[in-house]
């Protein structure tokens, strides 16, 4: 338990704050066709794809909390959505312990899609409905696509953030 709190948090929080600032300053002000690309979500799914579903869930929870604290969403709403996103992306480790970059990107795509689609769904639960329309699928696909593209670049940061070392495979001596 001590490791969970003090281990990755020391890296998660500062990296998360910088990612959040990049989101607020760069991506929030430069939407692509009215869709704001989600840098923090891309980092969460990269951490999940690099470290597994449990680490992805924790990364999503912490970065989501930072997101909530800086904005207008109820505290815990983005944490829940991003937690689900990180966990979904981390399921790639159920197939292979050291996924190829393209396989990680595919899972990052699905993880980000789940995370982005979970936001309006969670808002309905908290009584803030009105966002679930047919248009959200375009938003979800664009945001997930961005996360998939960014995944190979952000995965080393995600691994470092979560204190995961990449496995080194050695050939067996005959």
């Amino acid at each position: 338990m001590r490791n969970i709190i003090f281990g990755p948090l020391l890296r998660l929080v500062p990296v998360g704050l910088i990612a959040l600032s990049i989101q607020r300053v760069v991506f929030a002000n430069h939407p692509v066709g009215d869709i704001k690309l989600q840098f923090v979500l891309a980092l969460v799914v990269a951490a999940g794809a690099g470290g597994g579903s449990d680490r992805g869930a924790v990364a999503g929870f912490v970065l989501g909390l930072l997101y909530d604290a800086s904005g207008n969403t109820p505290l815990g709403l983005m944490a829940l959505s991003y937690g689900l996103a990180g966990m979904t992306a981390g399921y790639v480790h159920s197939f292979t312990p050291d996924p190829q970059w393209w396989l990680a990107s595919i899972f990052a795509f699905f993880g980000a899609a789940v995370g982005e689609a979970a936001i309006p769904a969670a808002e309905v639960i908290t009584g803030e409905d009105g966002w679930i329309t047919t248009d959200i699928w375009v938003t979800v696909v664009v945001v997930a696509g961005f996360a998939a593209v960014m995944c190979p670049l952000l995965m080393p940061i995600g691994r470092w953030m979560m204190g995961v070392k990449r496995k080194k495979w050695k050939a067996m001596l005959e």
């Binding site: 449990d54 869930a57 815990g76 944490a79 937690g83």
Partner: peptide
Amino acid sequence: MFSGLSRRRVLLLVVLTCVLLITLDK
């Protein structure tokens, strides 16, 4: 890192904490 916690427990912990925080904030 999560040796003492299974995947389901981590997820449950995250969900319950989020629900608690949302309730408090609301």
